[in-house]
Design a protein around this nucleic acid. Structure first.
Lengths: 226, 226
DNA sequence: ACATATTTTTAGGCTAATCTAAAAATTTAT
DNA sequence: ATAAATTTTTAGATTAGCCTAAAAATATGT
């Protein structure tokens, strides 16, 4: 009897997974509370329940790490979320800044068959509309060599492949600047004064972007994409 | 401030709507309890809450009827359910006996924009894979003149346009018998002994079907479909 | 190292949705 | 029309998930 898991529990697992992705330390109660927009007390409550179900490892005052079972649930959620985002953008013509909230709901639909058929229908995409990798059915992510635009040097070239910041404001800014995924760029100059950079776009336009923007754009150097 | 409505509340409203569809009397507590597979006590509880929100009219011991607001929520759910069923069958290649449970979850996704875009993507279907009408965005159902096969007389012709029984067993039986939607049939003979009927299919096969089956198949007489 | 600040947990309560058992109202049958 | 059967409601509990306030544990700064 595989004890069923609630949407709320799923959301906690996803949050914990994402926190652990960056920090290799256990996820702290406060970090989880912040991610879930809830109180630390509620997090402690939930952690105990998840621990009871062996989805996380918990030692009080020591934070939580994920078990294999917990990780599997989290990566499946991420897989579903990102596949639905592809569907919304590719098939229903939503723009990349509109899909997050809907995918947040769709990711909780329970049907392994559904998600495998959706994957096939979408022709097995490996990245979502924001350039984030879509894990396969075993939870394995495609790895891609990428750097932040802000870390590149003058005269280096590359292709925009992802974003760090998923807010509507940022995505809409990128649309207006024609800095969409797949755009080839060349870094022309870095201005030490404010760390802004001048880049050349494939349409021959030259634009200057702020440090902040340059630190939120992932670039794949050269054009090795076969 | 439109007080939000839970999935559970939505499911109750849909159940009440479907009960009221057939009987013009108020829906009884027991009928709702049966439809929701829950206890009468739970239904009374929920009815009070729905009544508080003006989604149903409730007088104790007198059953419930729906308000305009309640009806709107119910028909929107039915619209979403049926559109998702079309999607699952037409795009993801599910068969008509596999889609109910998944659509039961998908119908609760909250986004008016999503459902309108889905409708467009599916090219505004007016019937779902079982032949049930899909209400428009205003909750209006397409009306179709149809009779049960069991109500037809010898030598009458028509097209299979819907089913009364949505169980997998029945739908799979129809698949095996090639009695799918759109099939043209001619009623050859009725056997008074057990009310079974012999019909002629478009592929020139003659088959005999039981009373039970004949009472679960909707037929549109002649071929007036433009 | 020890006082202070921070983080985490515990304690106690709330709400939505459920349950069972018992009471009340309504319907049916004689 | 009144007793019996049925339906519906009430009463009282339970669980998941949340809250605030207070207590306990850990971390930090001098």
């Amino acid at each position: 009897m595989e004890s069923s898991i609630s949407q709320t529990e799923e959301n906690y697992l996803k949050a914990i997974y994402k926190i652990q992705e960056r920090a290799s330390k256990p996820a702290s109660t406060n970090a989880i509370a912040a991610a879930m927009s809830t109180s630390a007390a509620s997090v402690t409550d939930m952690i105990k329940r998840l621990s009871e179900k062996d989805l996380v490892n918990y030692e009080r005052y020591r934070g939580v790490t994920m078990t294999k079972d917990g990780q599997r649930i989290a990566t499946t959620l991420i897989r579903k979320h990102r596949l639905w985002e592809v569907f919304l953008v590719e098939k229903l013509d939503f723009s990349w800044d509109e899909v997050h909230d809907i995918a947040e709901q769709l990711e909780h639909i329970q049907s392994a068959e559904l998600i495998e058929r959706l994957d096939e229908y979408l022709e097995f995409p490996r990245f979502d509309p924001h350039g984030d990798p879509i894990p396969d059915a075993d939870g394995v992510f495609t790895h891609r060599k990428q750097v932040l635009l802000g870390e590149m040097s003058a005269n280096e070239v590359g292709v925009i492949v992802g974003v760090q910041d998923h807010t509507s404001d940022f995505l809409q800014y990128l649309d207006r600047m024609e800095l969409t995924l797949g755009t080839e760029i060349k870094l022309l100059e870095k201005y030490a004064y404010d760390d802004s950079v001048k880049i050349l776009l494939s349409n021959d336009k030259e634009i200057v972007i702020s440090k902040k923007v340059s630190q939120h754009l992932f670039i794949q150097k050269e054009f090795l994409e076969k």
